[in-house]
């Protein structure tokens, strides 16, 4: 028997698609545990914390932009690193004790830190390479965004 042509196969398969599939393991216990954990560690709502965090990120983005609009100088990396290290530290201190929405955010943060080290190493040979500087700024910004996002999720974006 000849197999149907692709268009027939596609139409037929799309009509037959199952919109419900059963996961192989029971996922509810994990959901229940996560809910219990987040209920137990509900933070005291403080609008100022969130505002301060958003303001810090905005300032960081503005400073980064300013660094790149001007001609890159040899001390750009050090200045940028210093600025972002302070921002990151202050966010981490601010969110200390607040529950994070994902368990593996520290792993994600360490992956971004690995990227930061790799780019800094490349910059040692080419300190004025604007593409590398731009990548470094992006990685720093991603770290700040990650810390903010896991501690102060923006539900409205879902």
């Amino acid at each position: 028997m000849n197999k149907p042509d692709f268009e027939q196969f596609l139409t037929q398969s799309l009509n037959d698609t199952k919109h419900e599939l059963t996961p192989e393991k029971d996922l509810w216990p994990g959901v229940e545990r996560a809910l219990a954990k987040s209920e137990a560690a509900k933070p005291v709502k403080n609008g100022w914390n969130k505002l301060a965090a958003i303001a810090a990120c905005t300032v960081a983005a503005l400073l980064t932009a300013q660094l790149f609009i001007k001609t890159p100088q040899t001390n750009s990396v050090a200045a940028m690193s210093d600025f972002f290290a302070k921002q990151k530290q202050s966010l981490l201190v601010q969110y200390e004790g607040s529950p994070a929405v994902t368990d593996n955010w520290q792993q994600q943060l360490s992956e971004l830190e690995e990227a930061e080290s790799a780019i800094k190493q490349a910059l040692e040979n080419e300190p004025n390479n604007s593409a590398l500087l731009s990548m470094l700024a992006q990685v720093y910004q991603q770290q700040l965004d990650l810390i903010n996002k896991v501690h102060a999720p923006k539900w409205q974006t879902i």
Binding site: L27, V31, A34, L35, S38, P153, W155
Partner: peptide, 12 residues
């Protein structure tokens, strides 16, 4: 991701 959906859904 399915678990994450149901954790976030509870709050949302």
């Amino acid at each position: 991701a399915t678990q994450e959906v149901f954790v976030q859904l509870w709050h949302k």
